[in-house]
C-alpha cells in the first residue's frame, strides 16, 4: 500500500497507472453481482466488526450479557412443550417432543432474526449510509452474522439436549442438518436483502415482516408434525406447504437431530426437494441482490 511518507511525485505516478473506477455501486447484469461480491469480500473485516458491534450493543451494560439471547428461545421451548405438548396433547403423537420443538425453533429463529433485523438494517445504519460509501449489502449481511452467532449458542444447547435425551446419533442423516442450515441462510439472506432495500422506500415493510414471521412460524411443522397438516390441507396447498424452504429446513433439522431415535416419518424425497429449493434460493438471492443494487443508488436521499 501507499505509505504515509510517499512523495508527491511518487503519488502522482502511481495514480497515473491506476485504472479508473466508477464512483458508487456497480452496474447491472450478472457481472454486477460478481463485482458486488468482490466488493463485499474486500470489506470482510468491516463485516466482522459490524457483526461484533451489533452483538455487543444488543446486550450492552447487562450483567447477563449474551446469555439473555437464550432466555427467549428457552422460554418458548418451555411454554410450547407444556401448553402444546402436554395440555393440548401434541406430545402424544410425537416422541421426544422437547427435542422436536427445539430443533424446529432453532432453525426458525435463525431465519426470523436474519429477516427481522435485516429488514431494518439499512435504516438503523442510516448515519453511515448517508455519509460514507460502502457496499450497502454489508448491513443486512451483518444482521446475518449476528443471527448466526445466536444460532450457534442455541445449536449447542440443541446438541447437548439431543445427546442427553438420546436422539443424537452419528450417521449420514446429520448431513440434513448442514443442508438445512445452508438452505435457511440462502433464503434468509435473499429475503433480508430484498426487504432491507424495500423498507427504505416503504417503512410499512418492517411491520408486515413482524406479522409475516409470526405467520410463517405456524406455517411450518415446528409445533406439530407435517402429517397432521397433511390430513387437513387440500393436495395443492400441501405441496406449497411442504416445499416452502422454511418447512424443508425445519424438517431437515428434525431429520438430523430427532428423527432417528423417535420414529419420525420423513417427507418423501426430502433431499431432492431441498436441493431444488436451494437452487431456486440461489437464483432468488442473485435477484434480491440485483434489486438491492438497483435501489441502493437512492438510499442516501431517501433516508
Amino acid at each position: 500500500m501507499a505509505g504515509l511518507d510517499e512523495s508527491p511525485t511518487e503519488r502522482s505516478t502511481r495514480l497515473l497507472n491506476e485504472p479508473w473506477q466508477h464512483a458508487g455501486a456497480v452496474g447491472g447484469g450478472v457481472t454486477g453481482t460478481i463485482e458486488s461480491v468482490k466488493e463485499i469480500w474486500a470489506h470482510r473485516q468491516l463485516l466482522g466488526l459490524l457483526t461484533k458491534r451489533e452483538l455487543k450493543s444488543r446486550y450492552k451494560d447487562s450483567a447477563g450479557g449474551f446469555l439473555w439471547s437464550l432466555a427467549k428461545p428457552l422460554t418458548q421451548l418451555f411454554i410450547y412443550y407444556l401448553v402444546i405438548g402436554q395440555f393440548l396433547g401434541a406430545a402424544r403423537n410425537i416422541e421426544n417432543f422437547a427435542v422436536y420443538i427445539f430443533a424446529g425453533l432453532t432453525v426458525y429463529t435463525l431465519f426470523s432474526e436474519i429477516v427481522g433485523s435485516g429488514t431494518g438494517s439499512i435504516i438503523a445504519n442510516s448515519g453511515l449510509v448517508k455519509k460514507v460509501y460502502l457496499p450497502r449489502e454489508i448491513f443486512p449481511l451483518a444482521a446475518v452474522g449476528s443471527a448466526l452467532f445466536n444460532f450457534l449458542v442455541q445449536f449447542v444447547i440443541l446438541i447437548v439436549a439431543a445427546l442427553v435425551i438420546g436422539t443424537l446419533s452419528f450417521g449420514p442423516q446429520l448431513l440434513f442438518g448442514v443442508a438445512s442450515l445452508v438452505l435457511i441462510l440462502i433464503w434468509g439472506t435473499a429475503v433480508g436483502i430484498l426487504l432491507a432495500a424495500l423498507n427504505v422506500y416503504l417503512r410499512d415493510i418492517q411491520y408486515l415482516v413482524e406479522v409475516g414471521l409470526l405467520l410463517f412460524m405456524w406455517a411450518s411443522p415446528i409445533l406439530y408434525s407435517w402429517q397432521q397438516a397433511a390430513d387437513v390441507l387440500p393436495a395443492w396447498l400441501l405441496e406449497v406447504y411442504v416445499n416452502s424452504p422454511i418447512t424443508l429446513s425445519v424438517l431437515g433439522f428434525q431429520e438430523a437431530f430427532w428423527s432417528e431415535a423417535s420414529n419420525g416419518v420423513p417427507l418423501p424425497h426430502l433431499a431432492l426437494r431441498m436441493l431444488v429449493a436451494g437452487v431456486i434460493g440461489i437464483i432468488a438471492l442473485i435477484f434480491a441482490q440485483r434489486v438491492f443494487s438497483r435501489l441502493q443508488g437512492d438510499f442516501a436521499q431517501e433516508l
Binding site: W20, Q21, G24, A25, V129
Partner: peptide
C-alpha cells in the same frame, strides 16, 4: 459514490 447520478457518470482513481 454516496449518491448515484440520474444521468452522466463519475470516474475516479
Amino acid at each position: 459514490g454516496i449518491i448515484q447520478p440520474t444521468s452522466g457518470s463519475v470516474q475516479r482513481r
